[in-house]
Amino acid sequence: MGRARRGRRCRVVGAAVFLVVGALAASACGSAEPPSLFASGKVSVGAKNDQPGTGVVHTYKFSGFDITVAQQVLKAVGVEPDFGIVPSEDRGAVLVEKKKDLVVATFSITVDRMKELDFAGPYASTYQGIMVRKNDHRIRRPDDLFGKRVCTWPGTTSATTLQGPEYSRIAVYERPDASSCIDDLKVKKVADAVSTDQMILYGFTQENPDLRVVPDITYGSANHYGIAMAKGHRADCLKLRDALRDYVRSNDWSHDFATSLWSVPKADPRWETDYKPRVETIDALSCRDQPRT
């Protein structure tokens, strides 16, 4: 009888210890989850500094549509952005390495990038295009680029697209950044054209009136720009997604786009249809490991 009681008591004590250890383990696991990016009320945001209209720095101040989108959406979730420069090729790395909380830098949402990062977006969509010197009318259609020197820069979907076999007759080459490509284009013997997303190209023409976008040349599928963050902050991502939905539905999106990228409405009467994202697309691409089909 005594042994039976001791046995039951040992089992009860053992069960209690198991519950305590389990609770501690659960608590430890819970504390391992990363805190909200918005906990301090301020987030570091990687942005471009050499893309007029989308992301540029003049007299130490950031401006452009990327910047306005970040300010509007973060304001809606009660957070203040602290902008810093990030080159195209480093946009993913600064998030994975925790050097930036967010990146808003005409960063296209792709299937491969969604495996490593979360995106809230798109906040704008555009196709890849071509920019030439204003008085150069040799390039009117895609075939006219055969044998021509076209400049791109690393870390962009534009550089990847033009590496396809169907473009092997185009002499594509890379420079370190957008500014270098534009400098090359202005020197007639160096480059015949610059290629990246049309939205970005139109921004370049705003500060370079001697350049123009060829409207009828586009490549590939649409590029959808998103607000990027490292994996592990899905709740924060969903808050940004919801704020972005409201922003796109409002009149503010069109006003802000036309203010930052005035060259687009000037050239394209269908600009809202061409560049403004649909809410359905935002839902399909935001805060997911792969696009919703």
Rank of each mutant, 00 (worst) to 15 (best):
R9F: 10
C10E: 06
R11D: 01
V13D: 04
V13W: 13
G14V: 04
A16H: 03
L19R: 02
V21R: 13
G22I: 10
G22C: 10
A25P: 09
A26E: 08
C29R: 14
S31T: 14
A32F: 09
A32R: 14
E33V: 13
P34L: 07
L37H: 10
F38P: 05
F38I: 04
F38V: 00
S40V: 02
V45Y: 15
P52W: 06
P52E: 08
T54H: 13
T54G: 12
V56M: 07
V56D: 11
T59M: 15
K61F: 06
K61A: 14
F62Y: 15
F62W: 15
F62D: 03
F62K: 07
G64Q: 05
G64A: 03
A70H: 02
A70C: 03
Q71M: 08
Q71G: 09
L74D: 06
V77Q: 05
E80A: 13
E80P: 04
D82S: 12
P87Q: 06
E89P: 02
D90N: 12
R91D: 00
R91L: 01
R91A: 04
G92P: 06
K98F: 10
K98N: 12
K99G: 09
K99R: 15
D101W: 01
V104W: 07
V104K: 07
F107G: 03
M114D: 04
K115R: 15
D118K: 05
A120H: 09
G121V: 09
A124C: 11
T126F: 14
I130Q: 03
M131Y: 05
H137L: 12
P142H: 04
L145G: 11
G147T: 01
V150P: 07
W153R: 01
T157Q: 14
A159C: 01
T161V: 14
Q163A: 13
G164H: 09
G164S: 15
E166Q: 14
Y167P: 11
V172R: 04
R175E: 10
P176I: 00
D177S: 09
S180R: 03
I182W: 01
K186V: 09
V187F: 02
V187C: 00
V187E: 00
V187L: 01
K189N: 07
V190E: 00
A191W: 00
A191H: 01
T196F: 08
D197F: 04
Q198I: 11
E207D: 12
D210Q: 05
L211V: 06
V213K: 00
P215E: 03
T218E: 02
S221A: 12
S221Q: 10
A222L: 10
H224P: 00
G226V: 08
G226T: 07
I227S: 13
M229Y: 09
R234W: 01
R234L: 13
A243P: 15
R245E: 11
R245D: 12
D252E: 14
S254M: 07
S254L: 07
A258M: 06
A258D: 07
T259D: 13
T259G: 07
L261P: 08
S263F: 13
R270D: 15
P277I: 06
R278V: 03
V279P: 06
I282A: 14
I282S: 08
L285V: 03
L285N: 05
S286V: 12
D289M: 14
